[in-house]
């Protein structure tokens, strides 16, 4: 039985076509309770179309979407259980901030008093409470984004979809958004986020789905994806002279090698155990001036999965 499992959402082979373009093609995944699940992919990967299908804004041509937010499976849950921050977003520019937020709360099933109380609490948290009676268009772009985010989480949804939640925020506020997501997760909210800031997603996502051209490229925890790309460790070595890549490329323990600069290379190792052997080999051939080890990033996993080099911009 579905509702006995830990799933809150199950997506089975959904597809959506716009004319001859397959925006989403046979995508399947599930999301567990209280997890932060990330949809990652370049522009045009089909993330927003997927999100819109999950929000019932557009219907999939094929496949099915099932929610398990209540005690039974449902095709689409009550809207008050869901929170949504779309990629293409905006709010009423000429309406007072608090009034807008209260209305957004009401349409998500809150009563007016509760919506007002929650809106004031969130405005306080985002240090905007002194501007609650001003119109939205008097705020800076960043602060407007904060109000937009509040409108999506005000009603404490059980399942929250955030499409590009970090867009428009400076690094400090991006961290604040991460903190809010973590708090909400701890309070029992399941979060699906779609983003391209992989370094931020990596910090919070329990599981990720990498998408490209409407289909899944990789799916699982970050650790699982690392295993999947067969990279366990990354070493950046700086030499006093110019190294030859082919010296390392032929090693069985090396997944790949890349030149970062004239004197600097990065070696992706299949397992951590081969680190010392690789370094010994490097030092026997060239004069090493600096060594740094790093975990492989989600961004690199993504590039490897797509077979794209870092220099090829996505």
């Amino acid at each position: 039985m579905y509702f006995q499992s830990n799933k809150v959402l199950e997506v089975k082979a959904i597809g959506k076509e716009y004319g001859k373009i397959k925006a989403v093609n046979g995508l399947s995944f599930h999301i567990n309770k209280r997890e932060i699940f990330a949809l990652l992919g370049p522009n045009g990967a089909g993330k927003t179309t997927t999100v819109r299908m999950l929000m019932n804004i557009i219907k999939p041509d094929t496949g099915e979407i099932k929610y398990f937010l209540e005690n039974s499976q449902e095709e689409f849950p009550k809207t008050e259980l869901l929170g949504y921050l779309p990629e293409e977003r905006g709010l009423y520019q000429d309406v007072k901030i608090l009034k807008t937020l209260v209305f957004m709360g009401i349409v998500r099933g809150m009563d007016k008093t509760h919506a007002k109380k929650e809106a004031e609490m969130w405005l306080e948290r985002f240090e905007l409470s002194d501007r609650k009676n001003e119109k939205l268009n008097t705020l800076s772009k960043g602060n407007q984004q904060k109000v937009q985010l509040i409108s999506a989480i005000l009603h404490k949804p059980k399942f929250l979809i955030l499409d590009e939640p970090f867009s428009g925020f400076d690094p400090i506020n991006q961290e604040a958004v991460i903190e809010i997501m973590t708090d909400m997760k701890n309070d029992g909210t399941t979060i699906l986020l779609s983003a391209h800031q992989m370094h931020l997603v990596e910090k919070i996502a329990d599981r990720v789905l990498l998408m490209n051209s409407g289909a899944s490229v990789a799916y699982g925890t970050v650790e699982e994806l690392k295993r999947d790309v067969a990279v366990d460790e990354k070493i950046i070595i700086h030499f006093s002279d110019v190294p030859l890549l082919s010296v390392f490329e032929n090693d069985d323990t090396v997944e790949s090698v890349k030149q970062l600069s004239k004197n600097e290379i990065v070696i992706y190792l299949k397992n951590k155990e081969s680190l010392s052997a690789t370094l010994n080999k490097a030092s026997s051939l060239y004069n090493i001036t600096k060594v740094k080890t790093e975990d492989i990033s989600l961004h690199e996993i993504f590039l490897k999965k797509l077979g794209v080099t870092a220099e090829q911009k996505l």
């Binding site: 929000m55 019932n56 949504y84 921050l85 293409e88 977003r89 409108s151």
Partner: peptide
């Protein structure tokens, strides 16, 4: 134009 519609129709 202000991209409000998508937010609203996800709730109503």
């Amino acid at each position: 134009q202000l991209r409000i519609t998508e937010v609203l129709v996800s709730a109503i």
